[in-house]
Structure formats: C-alpha cells, structure tokens
Write a protein that binds this DNA or RNA. Structure first.
Lengths: 83, 83, 83, 83
DNA sequence: CCAACTGAACACGATC
DNA sequence: GATCGTGTTCAGTTGG
C-alpha cells in the first residue's frame, strides 16, 4: 500500500487536505465579511443610514435575480422557437 | 455646489460607491462559498462522509474560538486587577 | 360541518389554540429573561464585573457545546464504521 | 475572615452561585424555546403555514405593546388631571 | 455608539 | 423529484 490507511480504508492525509482547504476558504470568506463590515462602518461615519443601505442592496439583489430569471425564460422561449 | 446633491443633502455618488463596493465584496464572498461547496463535492466523490467532515470543521472552529475567548477573558481579568 | 371553518378550509379555532400556546410560552421565556437580568443586577450590586461574568458563562457554554459535539461526532464515526 | 476570599477581594463562592443561577435560568429558557419549536412543528404537521403564524404573533405582540403604551399615556394624563 | 445576543430567513442536503 | 428537516447566515434588539 503506497498510502497509509487506517482500518476503515480512509486516507487520512487526503481528508486532512480537504478539511484544510475548506478552512482556508472559510477564513477568506470571513475576511471579506470583515471588509464588508468596514465599508458599512465607513458609510455610517459618512452619515448614511446603514439599515436603509442594506435594504437597497437586498432589493437590487432581488431585482438582479428576477432579471436573470427573465433571461432564462427568454432563452427557454427562444430555444423552443428555434426547434 | 461642486457635488451634485439631492434635496436630502445626500451625496448620491458617494452612496452609490459604497453600495457598489459592498456588492462587489458580496459577490466575492459568494464565489468563495461556491468554492467551498465544490471541495465538499470533491471530498464526497472521494468517498468521504461530508456530514462528519462538517462536524470536524465545526468542532475545530469552536476550539479555536474557545481559545480566543479564554485569552480575552484573561485580558479582562488583568485589566480588572490593574484598576 | 362539525367544526367552523373559514373559506380557506382553515380551522381557525385550532390555529388560535396553537398561537395562544406559543404566546404563553414566549411570555414565560420573557419572564425568565427578566429573572436573568435581575441576577446580573444583584451580582453587579455585590461588586462583580458583569462583563467578565458574561464571558465566563459564554466560555462554559461553548465548552459544554464542544463536548456534546464531540460525542455526536463519535457516534457518527461509530455509525459510519458500523456500515 | 469568615468567608474565603482571594487576593482580589472576590468572594468566589458567591460568584459561583450567581453564575450557576444564571446558567440554570438559561437552561430553562432554552427548554421553553424547544417547546415553542415543537408547537410550531405540530402546527406545521396540521397544515398551517408557520411563516404566516410567526407574522401573526409578531403583529399581535406589537399591537399589545402599542396598547400598553397607550395605557401608560392615559395614566399619565389622568395623573396630570388628578393633580 | 459599539458589540453581543437573539430570532427569522434562507439554502442545502437527506430521504422517501 | 419533491418535501422535510437542519444548519448557516443575516437583520434586529438590547445591554454595556
């Protein structure tokens, strides 16, 4: 056996690698979360209402999702017609 | 007036900039979320139990948080004594 | 019709009962919250630093959660091996 | 000294008692939280939309708070007149 | 005013 | 494939 394995047939090294990759990514994600918080903080200092800002962002996200849905629908129609 | 403002005295351009920065960051964050999902998917294909993996990651995160809290607590104590 | 129903086919009486049960429980919970607040208040009057107390409680809670998660993880492993 | 004290002048026994009382109360509170969850679960099984139920409960709570505020205001007025 | 805690919404995976 | 339960994440509230 080239690779060390436990009785369960689990390659611990590979598992560890997976877990570390995920932990690394989660750290990055948390870092970005901190960045976002900072931007809100800046905006607040500049006198903006962050609660409203959040609403704006949420609405824009929904609109975007809507538009993408519409696009998908359009594609569907076009494909249907193209047949 | 050098900068265009609405009646509310809000600098719309600056607000827009803040919002766009946040939206950019949120996109990045979502991208990383997708990456994480992929790694789990890979691990699953390699025969690992993702449920267990998640639990392991959660415990490791809690351990880490625990240690950090202990440090904070120590600092608190020291400050309290220092008074 | 034995039971009065609205046009939506919803048994209003039963719904009301559910909601009242929940509201009752939420009141109880709020009451306990008030009790907790009082204890903190007492402790503060006795000269203790509530900030430190909260941190201690938080850490103890995390430790406990940690231990429970470890147990769950062990169970998961055993089940995985048992297959 | 009747009671054992550390150098910081902290009565550890009393502190411990406070913390245990709080932890006990928090457990009770968590128990009630679990009960609430169960009721929602029951309601769901009975075919009710829990999301809407939550809204109803929230609105009723706000109404109640409103009414209490009105009562306080009324009391204030009555007291003012009574003087 | 900042930070922690709580509760709600969402998204994902598991199961039938 | 759809529904169900669960876990994660986000917004709101409260306390320091």
């Amino acid at each position: 056996m080239a690779v060390k394995k436990g009785s369960g047939g689990v390659d611990a090294g590979r598992l560890k690698s997976f877990i570390q990759r995920i932990e690394k990514l989660e750290e990055e994600r948390a870092g970005i979360g901190a960045d976002i918080k900072e931007v809100f903080s800046e905006a607040k200092s500049a006198g903006y209402d962050t609660k409203i800002m959040r609403q704006v962002i949420r609405i824009r996200k929904m609109d975007k999702a809507d538009r993408e849905e519409q696009d998908e629908l359009l594609t569907l129609y076009l494909n249907a017609v193209g047949e």
